[in-house]
Design a binder for these strands. Sequence first.
DNA 1: ACATGTTTGTTGTAAGTCCAACATTGAGGC
DNA 2: GCCTCAATGTTGGACTTACAACAAACATGT
Lengths: 264, 264
Amino acid sequence: MDKLSKRERQDRIVNRLNTTVAVRISDLAEEFDVTTETIRRDLDALAVRGLLARTYGGAAMRALTDEPGIAARAQTYVAERERIGLKAATLVKSGDVLIIDAGSTTAHLAKVLAQLPLEFKVITNSIGVARVLGQSDTASVLLCPGDVRLTEEGVFGAETLDFLDRYHANMAFIGAGGFTAKEISDADAAGVAIKRKIITRSERVYLLADHTKAGITQFATICPLSAMDGLITDAMADDGMRQALAEAQVELMIAEQGKAGLAA
Amino acid sequence: MDKLSKRERQDRIVNRLNTTVAVRISDLAEEFDVTTETIRRDLDALAVRGLLARTYGGAAMRALTDEPGIAARAQTYVAERERIGLKAATLVKSGDVLIIDAGSTTAHLAKVLAQLPLEFKVITNSIGVARVLGQSDTASVLLCPGDVRLTEEGVFGAETLDFLDRYHANMAFIGAGGFTAKEISDADAAGVAIKRKIITRSERVYLLADHTKAGITQFATICPLSAMDGLITDAMADDGMRQALAEAQVELMIAEQGKAGLAA
DNA sequence: ACATGTTTGTTGTAAGTCCAACATTGAGGC
DNA sequence: GCCTCAATGTTGGACTTACAACAAACATGT
């Protein structure tokens, strides 16, 4: 058995981390019949390229959220999104039927909900939300069909829209690329179609959006702001927006720092 | 700042691994202001419960596929499954429409397919397969709706069956818990229902099963062996089985070691 | 107060890892 | 052949972790 090339060896290491959570330098060295130093150099090189995460003595697979598209966004304003997720979770009670949109903010909500002992049903087009809430023993999750788009970690398209038409929820949580006193919008047409459908299929709809989304208008309009029943955000300085929300009868919920909605 | 209870500490560690790929014992010890030994004991306890994976010097988040019961099996015969996946992938060509079942063996097939520059459509009820193939630029993936069951990394139930009824494929790949000269079977009733449906919706059906599945009968019957067009496995010693396959006109494909179907 | 069991800390030894500096090997290019 | 560069191996010392056995602290029920 000839020794593998550097390229081949590194490919196999990355490949292995698709199935294994973590690898150890000493094991790899033995398996490939090279020195631990060589493996160490491989791991360091791969880590720089972001293909894996170094650990003491080995390496671990990269994070699930490390998908190309989402990576950058997911890393920014994480704390804000977590607070928003916590706040939103306080609205949910046992017996509810929820629709949860695909998006990085809604993913945080799912994480919180998965740890609560509430019995509720969730309909979602987000693969991430489905995975996270699937871990809950008390919640049941119904995943929509559709064309898989990994950049958004969800399914989209005609099948998804058709499917949603056949269900009804009493509460929905959606995300958006931007919102103004007038309307909510997003940059992704396929995603907007889903959001619009979700709104029609739910009694109440809540918008989850951090403060950076305020005042932003993107090219695809989702709906007028008044179509929302509530806005959950992390900060709201603009008095004009406050008034617009009040006039549109949209409840404003601010997830303030240190004031988590649920006891830790 | 009071010291946290064992319970709280362990909760936080698990929680952290939802956002971080790996943690280090020394860091945790410092952060929680306890000894490394305490953290080590925490990690070992959590690892036994399957909530994380130990690494040298710390822990990593558990794999998506690492469900309690499956963990042991999933680690063994990985090489065999990879070979089977490679072999199966040689059957696929551009323009094909595939249905791929949920299962650990089919997941390997998906991994191989994702790296080929073929243009094909895939319909699947496996969240894992959808994620993996979603990374391909050339393949398009249609995910089935259904109730999410994370133990199998897929969706199941009436919605899934209904959905499959509306599609037609020219090739399908399914897994099974066991197969004999007579029939194919599995331990999971919901999964069997899906497999049966897949068989009716595809022109050709291939069974992917490693050699440990041979001669095993589980409680839920999927179909007679003759319903398959091909069996892809890694070893086949039994002459009786060979003959049965020939009589049933099931093509036997053996993925032998070192004879990968595709160049590495 | 007492006994009991759990949790955590302490300690010492063995083993593993990290890092840097330097030696060796191997594949092209001239 | 010779040179050069990249890849790998080697080595030694500093640091880190693993493991096991035992001690101390803490909670809990009687």
